[in-house]
Write a protein that binds this DNA or RNA. Sequence first.
DNA 1: CTATTTGTTGATCATATGATCAATAAGGAT
DNA 2: ATCCTTATTGATCATATGATCAACAAATAG
Lengths: 210, 210
Amino acid sequence: MDMNKTDIIDPKSKRRRLPPDERRQQIVDGAVAFFAEVGLEGKTRHLAKRLGITQSLLFNYFESKESLIEAVYAQVYIDRLSPDWSQRLVDRSVPLRDRMLAFYTDYSKLIFEYEWMRIFMFSGLAGAELNRRYLDHMNKMILQPLLGEVHALSANSKTADMEDLWNLHGGIVYIGIRQHIYRMPCPDDPSLAIEHAVDRFLQAFAVEQD
Amino acid sequence: MDMNKTDIIDPKSKRRRLPPDERRQQIVDGAVAFFAEVGLEGKTRHLAKRLGITQSLLFNYFESKESLIEAVYAQVYIDRLSPDWSQRLVDRSVPLRDRMLAFYTDYSKLIFEYEWMRIFMFSGLAGAELNRRYLDHMNKMILQPLLGEVHALSANSKTADMEDLWNLHGGIVYIGIRQHIYRMPCPDDPSLAIEHAVDRFLQAFAVEQD
DNA sequence: CTATTTGTTGATCATATGATCAATAAGGAT
DNA sequence: ATCCTTATTGATCATATGATCAACAAATAG
């Protein structure tokens, strides 16, 4: 087996000099994992040690700790909301139950990630505007259209309001909270619990036409 | 109007020398509000300034910041779970719906407090055992008995499991999370939303006998 | 009024923190 | 092999942090 010199990574040697883009990405990745674990008040020296670099190097790629955290937000939250979710939710050629299950299957895969859930909670507690922007977006792009779809199938006198939808949503989100914030034992696969929650909701408010 | 010298409280003067018990309680109260707002990594000097005392005085009443936080936990969480909740939940002389509404009305009044909710989340993220102990207790004393009651009224083939109960529970708790963690607009009175959530749950799983 | 007790302060310590910058050395070009 | 660019480091700064303790002063007793 022939190995190129550059293939050999000696952990003891100071393996330095990465291409800037690569190093920057390595830092962001490490920062996501680090801040998710210890919180946004985690110290730059600890992050640097975990990355195997010096603390001062961090400030070569980010002008402040705050801007590093911005990069973390960007990595974890920006452009991870599928733009076609709102469209697929209102596609009445598909049964509403299927649409809702498809959405929450996708969405829960995203938000039940350790990093997503914990950084979202840390930043929420810190009062970052990120969270309210994100949830406003959710409200406008997901829950509002969804409410319209539920109303379109309402048979009984009982009619769902936004608070009922937040209740459905919160019950599902809470699975991730139990798992990643409180570290409680949770079902390996949450899809069954999600399915039941959606069915209970639809049983109360909507009746499929066919 | 004759005023005793001791009745006059001059805010500018260093009004010192409180009875130890009183001072200690003042510090704990201030610490609860302070840590709920800024998190458990809030600095002792800031807390002291807010209380109008010196930072060193804190360490006269608590041997470390950690022990002060323990006192905060004690103040907010210990002995605030009514011991008769589990009993009243299994009192079958009362309709299950009424029992559940009574419980969640009481319980939500507790956990929807700003301090309760935020400190619980901060400590959960910090990995404090407080949270898991608390939720284990909730599971054993509330949700498990409640599951038994639901089963006793199960008519259909569908039978609730613990995950369904956590879903109900989480959907309700999430109201407080939206309000105090994400600072979103929420209904002034959550009792209606709670009522609907409980009714949806019971509609799916339990039929009252009478 | 004086003395005693003790709740409270201000100065201080050792360490930790975000940030800066000149000096260094890795890796490609010549 | 030698030079040159620049990614990386190590020393350093100013400030902040939890914690300690001798000195101070407010309330009470004699």
